[in-house]
Write a protein that binds this DNA or RNA. Structure first.
Lengths: 236, 236
DNA sequence: CCGGCTGATTGGTATAGACCAGAAGTCTGC
DNA sequence: GCAGACTTCTGGTCTATACCAATCAGCCGG
């Protein structure tokens, strides 16, 4: 083949990874040793590794090295199953870390919910893990009137569960938006990856059955960690 | 700031692009001249450009240079509005090129529709443009019994329109899957971009109201050209 | 046995330069 | 005036090397 060398390298690495995944326990050898093995430079090697990263086969943890990516989590953003539930349903181990609890305004959330820019929200920021890999950070912006004292009682459980059980909210209308992105320096740092790593941004605006705004939700996922799946029946 | 230089460069380029977008008519100056202007190497400059590419601000056309990306197309994969309709509804100009018409088996489509691997399909491959930029290629795999003579009469119009009007098919059940990807060499070539360019893969399996398989649909989008949007009402 | 220090390793960043093939622009000859 | 040949420019790829800062493993002392 007359392809570029880094593309050949990509294929060789792909098979090499397949064969040695178990042996290496998920972590690839050092870039320098791989570059030496294929008689090339780190620059070219990294170009090949980046290809595989784009495919979602491997990923890197900032300054720690390259790792083989686990299977993607299947996720249906139109359903309101909690994160913990569907992660466990796929035989994986979920975990959540709460990063921030505060009260403040957030114009993008306000606009998405049709509220004035200075509308205060209860802000919950959390990081979610699957099998001890951080796969997303998210910010939840809850309208205070809908869930008083939320910030005092919240400690990492399912927010939608709380809204339903404690305040009886019926999450009837959702408008969902998904865009590919490059993770901002802040999001990247919270996910332990390099700034600019490919991500997927999922936003949801949620209203109740009387069109009253309840909550706005901003998720930043690592691009290789999920597979979005939606099942629909009936003409739309 | 003590950030890496390429990150500072990214910001400088961002404002430079904002200011000169009109002047440059959408095309950035040559890499060499940009590198000189910022007193750095092409390698470092390209690192910064790649950041902006990841954000979807700019993109490149293979060997032709860097271009400012137009606004993303808003797309709802759960609705069956035709491509031409929703592109025009957003004030843009759609175009379609048919790349291939053939009849053959395709195991992935067969599996998604619950048919045997050797099931033959009518295969339509087409490239779609928005305002003269190729933004996706797709393969449609139609079950022959549902649409006899499709390959003889098809010439670029809306497939779902045809299925509905000519064969009276009611596209009742869809199972949709979205995954980020790196474009394969073939897909990349058909979209005039470099292999490995970030893309979004959207697959749809479509059954009628009696659960009979009709069609399987594989779309490969440039990652920066769309914004997926879904509106739902009612509990799910 | 545990915790903090330390040095080797490794990924992240950057420089400088080179060659090739495709694209674009120019020139030429009919 | 136009088609085709030629030249230049430009992005794509690659080499070789270097330094920094974060990580990690191992050592040392309490």
């Amino acid at each position: 083949m007359s392809d570029a060398y880094y593309l050949q390298l990509t294929e060789q690495l792909r098979t090499l990874i397949d064969q040695n995944a178990a042996l290496w326990e998920g972590k690839l050898p050092a870039e320098r040793s791989l570059a030496e093995r294929f008689a090339t430079t780190r620059v070219t090697l990294r170009q090949a590794l980046s290809q595989l990263e784009g495919e979602g086969l491997i990923h890197r943890s900032n300054r720690r090295g390259w790792f083989i990516s686990p299977a993607r989590l299947v996720y249906d953003p139109t359903r309101d199953a909690g994160f913990n539930d569907y992660v466990r349903a796929q035989g994986r181990q979920p975990r959540t870390a709460v990063l921030k609890l505060e009260s403040r305004a957030h114009p993008p959330a306000a606009r998405a919910l049709g509220l004035p820019d200075d509308q205060p929200f209860q802000h919950i920021r959390r990081r979610r893990y699957v099998d001890d890999r951080a796969v997303l950070v998210e910010s939840l912006w809850v309208v205070p009137e809908r869930a008083p004292e939320l910030l005092d009682i919240y400690s990492g459980q399912s927010l939608w569960g709380l809204l339903r059980e404690r305040w009886g909210h019926y999450l009837a209308n959702r408008s969902i938006r998904m865009v590919s992105e490059a993770l901002s320096p802040m999001d990247a740092e919270e996910l332990f990856v390099a700034p600019g790593t490919a991500g997927l941004n999922i936003n949801r605006a949620i209203l109740d059955d009387q069109q009253r705004p309840i909550e706005f939700d901003e998720e930043h996922w690592l691009h290789d960690s999920l597979c979005i799946s939606v099942e629909l029946s009936g003409q739309r």
